[in-house]
Write a protein that binds this DNA or RNA. Structure first.
Lengths: 95, 95
DNA sequence: GTTATTTGGTTTATAAAATAAACAAGTCTA
DNA sequence: TAGACTTGTTTATTTTATAAACCAAATAAC
């Protein structure tokens, strides 16, 4: 049994946590992701940009109660990549 | 449900593959690991050093048929770390 | 028998990545 | 209107991952 390659976009703790959260909730804003991942704002901002550049999430910026609001949702591509990643890494975990 | 931290030693494709192999076979030499992971020799050498420094594997160097032979085995610490990692990452995969 | 070539690795160099720290732009409050 | 808070982004720095280069010894070829 060979080891399947692990998508480097998803093989990162924070990005994987974000995508995992988005699979469950379908839409989440910046503060929700902050609280549920425990990340710093800087790191979260950076990793959201990476996920967006990869086409794994869509980002909608608006204003909510006068404050900027960044809302994220998983794309079909992101979901597929996550499912592929889950299948791949299980090949490493089941010994 | 919070996301457990992922041991950075194990959260790497090649190191995880090596440890995963060692869980199964208990002892493996350099070429065996090379073939079963598809890694380059340089990368494998580096990651074996990292795993050894972390105390996750023991490395025994000897000569076999006149050639140097590097044989690796998982330590108790390495097995425990692997099991912890498996438990932790499953929290990211089960959505 | 001395010049390749192969084996079994290690070391070095470099590009990419992860993350914290600093910054920014606007809002609220006293 | 000064200061503190919100919601992020950008910059800077330390790690990491990896390939490329190197090396020593063994074997093969000539």
């Amino acid at each position: 049994m060979a080891f399947a390659p692990l998508d480097p976009i998803l093989h990162n703790q924070l990005r994987l946590a974000v995508v995992s959260l988005l699979v469950g909730v379908e839409r989440a804003d910046f503060n929700y992701l902050l609280e549920h991942t425990g990340a710093t704002r800087g790191n979260l901002s950076t990793q959201l940009t990476r996920l967006k550049e990869a086409g794994y999430i869509s980002v909608k910026k608006s204003f909510k109660d006068n404050y900027p609001n960044t809302s994220c949702a998983l794309t079909a591509k992101g979901l597929k990549a996550f499912e592929t990643y889950v299948g791949a890494i299980k090949g490493y975990l089941d010994t």
